[in-house]
């Protein structure tokens, strides 16, 4: 099946008419980001990976979960239904698509966070396999591929002439989508561009070895930790751009008469994240906070949630102002 780039305009239009949101890679603030587009002309095709991950469409940076009105001693508390429109996520990279299973595993672990699941259920993922990449990419080191189909409802591969995509419908949702917008999809096949393959990480990475080393609490005392993580600023850019980071804060905003309860992204790299009211902070140095992030990715996620904590998108490598490269830490712990 073929989706020609010329027909993308019609697809966007029809999707919009159906009342759904169409998010795709587009330029904003000088970089290509996943954003809601109104016309196909806004869509960028020239990008390695969007600066933000598609996670914010399923797990927004900020959302109101309840509204409270207080009058004298009468409290009116109303839960706010999550705003979960039908959403088409177009041009998602396969690594980002694979991350949705990870987020889902956290948000459905025993207790179900419906503001996540509702949004995911109402989204359809059209991933585009990578024909280019950069030094930050390392999906192959975490057991994925630049054309991994995990998490994608449809996967698109750019044709050799660059004018179209070869489309593969992977899920029932994907097949439904093709049926619904059948006039933009054409029968046929074509040759596709070569898939990009990330470079090997210097020193080599062995995920099983990393898991094994992290499973032993003794590694906390390993002097390699301060050596590796000392330079971290604690800026949190890695966590905010990460497609699997799920930490959040719940806080009230407003005044004592009218207030909104918010659920906002938060980050384990921020210094007061785990600060107790008593002043005690279990993760009181940046080294401990960074170690926790690495533990989360390569020990907690696989062990506790049985999903991938890291999909190798490389955003944390690209955004880190001090170049604390997670792949170097992975190589160190593969020894």
């Amino acid at each position: 099946m073929i989706l020609s780039k010329e027909k993308l305009g019609a697809l966007v239009e029809q999707v919009k008419i159906s009342g759904a949101l169409f998010a795709a890679p587009a330029v904003d603030g000088g970089q290509v980001v996943m954003k809601s587009v109104n016309v196909a002309d806004e869509i960028s095709f020239d990008y390695v990976i969007t600066a933000n991950s598609a996670k914010e469409y399923l797990f927004p940076q900020t959302e109101t979960i309840a509204v409270v009105e207080i009058e004298k001693n009468k409290v009116k508390l109303s839960a706010v239904e999550p705003d979960a429109p039908e959403t088409v996520l177009f041009g998602v990279r396969p690594c980002d698509a694979a991350a949705f299973a990870s987020l889902r595993s956290v948000f459905t672990w025993d207790f179900i966070d419906e503001s996540y699941t509702k949004r995911e259920d109402k989204s359809i993922v059209l991933s585009v396999a990578c024909t280019k990449g950069d030094e930050g990419c390392f999906c192959t080191s975490v057991g994925l591929k630049p054309d991994t189909t995990d998490g994608s409802d449809l996967q698109l591969k750019e044709t050799t002439d660059g004018g179209s995509f070869v489309v593969e419908a992977l899920t029932d949702k994907g097949k439904e989508f093709v049926k619904k917008f059948s006039d933009v999809f054409d029968d046929g096949s074509a040759d596709t561009k070569a898939i990009f393959t990330p470079d090997e990480i210097p020193g080599g990475v062995d995920i099983e070895k990393i898991k094994e080393r992290l499973a032993d609490p003794a590694h906390y005392a390993d002097p390699v930790w301060p050596e590796l993580a000392r330079k971290c600023f604690g800026c949190g850019a890695c966590t905010f751009s990460c497609p699997t980071c799920h930490c959040f804060d719940i806080t009230d905003e407003g005044d004592v008469f009218s207030t909104e309860r918010k659920k906002n992204w938060d980050a384990c790299q921020i210094d007061n994240f785990t600060l107790h009211a008593s002043g005690h902070n279990p993760r009181d140095t940046q080294t401990k906070r960074w170690r926790n992030r690495f533990m989360c990715k390569f020990h907690i996620y696989p062990k506790k949630f049985t999903t991938k904590g890291c999909v190798g998108c490389g955003r944390c490598v690209r955004v880190c102002p001090v170049r604390l490269d997670i792949t170097e830490v992975m190589a160190e712990f593969s020894k």
Partner: peptide
């Protein structure tokens, strides 16, 4: 078990 703060290791 969602917000990511209270973990002691795993």
């Amino acid at each position: 078990g969602k917000c990511g703060r209270c973990n002691v290791g795993d």
